[in-house]
Design a protein around this nucleic acid. Structure first.
Length: 551
RNA sequence: UUCGAGGUAGCUCAGUGGUAGAGCAAUCGGCUCUCACCCGAUCGGACGCCGGUUCGAGCCCGGCCCUCGAACCCA
């Protein structure tokens, strides 16, 4: 060990830190927790990313700090509003709010003391930081040709050794490098001192130690592009920004763990205090990293569900984010944001040995990095669905109605404006449906048979209900009794049914199915007497008549 | 190939040297009006393998196996 530099994270009270770009952050309270989530604009919000973002957000909220959103678009081709919008919309839907970052309209503007928060708009800062390192002799231009580098890489491969790149001007004096770089731009590399060890403690994964011999001289700035612009590479842009923003906890996906020693050297070169790092394990699907490509397309059932919601085949086909990997899918099929949040947080993190269901308040009050698990977690759709059901039980009827409305409108079961009478009917339907509505889109299955004026009889249901020839006779007799029911409410018709069946020695089962199919066209639904009541006497009797006349 | 991270019930996770746990799923039963809800029960495990330390190992040590990830002028 001896003279080995140790890059242990400081005690939290050591914040705030050196900040090369701004003096504002030096005024921060030393106890502030600042976290960030930095998605690259891919055009959809990945649920694995959401989980990481949730951890960051919860950490900031728990400690009264700030959560910052940053768009990592150093690869400038991706810097387009349409690629950012779905990400921002996803967070808005989830209710994950950010204290600084891109504006909610995804116009490319930012808000907050360190704006802009788009890396594509911050290259001047990266260049300034890199020039400082160049002048100090900590960075140097590399004039290695691609051919030379390929050859070196091939050589290392044959020798079965990892390729560790060192550039041409590594040992050239600082002033000379400044002169050469001014004359001819090239990739700018950080000089890594060999023969040293970098150690750090990850808040999730524990102690890590790396020998600098295995760390290549990392690129800070790329060589000039066709416009002569030298754009920063991810690793460097991230470090410059995290320092500038005063990030205290860098929580990100495990694949960044191996970037960390390199970034630590950058922090050191820039003279900055280190944040705490926490690397969270991946979300798996079927045993590997969850990705759009590996994830199943919509099932036939799901497609049917979307179509019932009023989607056309073309609309479904036109949305590549209708996929369990993207947040949009959950929104469109009617999940509750708090259920997705609960599930995602539970995936790879635990409150204790048994708690599965957690409200947002519980999460905000209890989230800690040290209970993030080491092992990757597999996505489990059934578990999510169960959690959804649990959260749905807590939603009051009025709110449930409100949140079902967009689905009913889309399916054209109700008009664009909602009158009081329709709202009253919907309330009755939602109320009668009870816990059967797991997803908001489920409301359609219960509402459609009642709201549609032209009843659609499912042939299979009809077959099943009237297979027994006595069914129609019974139903016709019972219809006569229904005519006399006044008021036509569930209690009255229920009593009528029992009065009708008891003398015959029959139970409700004898008439339940034919009656249900006659008035709804399907075999399932909520309570049959609730159904009759919501339908009203006239419509109910008319439907029974129609059913009796069939075949 | 090199480096890194994992492996406890079908799945997600607890288990911090002292008799292997929870939820979900599955199966069965009860309730009811079909489903859902609710209630009850059942099924679940050589803790990846081998060895070592220990009175005692899922936990500590060593080796191996398997899985995943990284090794880009991607992020």
């Amino acid at each position: 060990m001896g003279k080995t530099p140790r890059l242990e994270p400081p005690h939290p009270s050591a914040y705030p830190v050196f900040n090369p770009q701004s003096s504002i952050s030096n005024l921060r309270s030393s106890m502030t927790t600042r976290t960030r989530f930095a998605p690259s604009p891919t055009g959809y919000l990945h649920i694995g990313g959401v989980r990481t973002a949730l951890f960051c957000w919860l950490l900031a909220r728990r400690h009264g700090g700030q959560f910052i959103l940053r768009i990592d678009d150093t690869d400038d081709a991706r810097n387009r509003a349409e690629a950012v919008k779905p990400i921002i919309d996803g967070f808005k839907w989830l209710g994950v709010d950010w204290d600084e970052g891109p504006t909610a309209d995804a116009s490319g503007d930012s808000f907050g003391p360190h704006k802009p928060y788009y890396q594509g708009q911050r290259n001047d800062k990266y260049e300034a930081a890199a020039m400082k390192l160049l002048a100090e002799g900590k960075a140097y231009p590399d004039y290695t040709t691609p051919e030379q580098q390929d050859a070196a890489r091939e050589h290392a491969k044959l020798a079965r050794k990892p390729y560790v790149h060192r550039g041409t001007n590594r040992d050239v004096p600082a002033e000379e490098n400044v002169r050469q770089y001014a004359a001819k731009k090239a990739p700018l590399l950080l000089r890594v001192d060999v023969g040293r060890r970098v150690t750090f403690t990850d808040a999730v994964k524990g102690k890590h130690e790396v020998n600098t011999d295995t760390i290549r001289d990392p690129m800070l700035l790329r060589g000039p592009d066709e416009n002569g612009l030298c754009r920063a590479v991810y690793n460097f842009a991230t470090v410059v920004d995290d320092i500038d923003f005063g990030i205290t906890h860098v929580v990100r996906a495990i694949e960044h763990l191996e970037n960390t020693p390199t970034q630590l050297l950058m922090y050191q070169a820039l003279g900055a205090t280190l944040p705490t790092f926490g690397h969270v394990p991946q979300v798996y699907f079927a045993g590997e990293k969850m990705s759009k490509r590996k994830t199943p397309k919509l099932s036939a059932d799901e497609v049917a569900k979307f179509k019932a919601c009023g989607w056309t085949d073309a609309e479904i086909a036109g949305r590549d984010d209708l996929n369990i990997i993207a947040v949009a899918y959950y929104k469109e099929i009617g999940y509750l944001p708090e259920a997705l949040i609960n599930y995602l947080c539970r995936l790879g993190w635990s409150l204790d040995a048994e708690t599965e269901f957690m409200t947002l308040d519980t999460l905000k009050a209890n989230f800690t990095l040290d209970r993030v698990t080491d092992a990757p977690g597999g996505y489990d759709a059934k578990k999510l669905y169960w959690i959804q059901g649990e959260h749905m039980k807590l939603v009051p009827t009025a709110e449930k109605v409100e949140r079902c409305v967009p689905f009913l409108k889309r399916a054209k079961l109700i008009g664009d404006t909602l009158d009081d009478r329709t709202r009253a009917v919907l309330t009755k339907i939602v109320d009668a449906s009870g816990d059967r509505i797991k997803l908001f889109s489920d409301v359609l299955a219960f509402a459609a048979p009642i709201l549609k004026s032209d009843i659609e009889y499912d042939p299979k249901a009809v077959e099943k209900a009237f297979k027994d020839p006595t069914a129609k006779t019974l139903l016709a007799e019972f219809a006569e009794m229904l005519k006399g029911c006044d008021p036509f409410d569930a209690t009255t018709t229920d009593k009528a049914a029992h009065d009708f069946l008891a003398p015959k020695g029959l139970k409700l089962g004898a008439i339940q199915l034919p009656l249900r199919v006659a008035v709804t066209g399907t075999t399932s639904g909520f309570g049959i007497f609730d159904t009759l009541a919501i339908l009203g006497k006239e419509a109910a009797l008319k439907r029974i008549e129609t059913a009796l006349a069939m075949r």
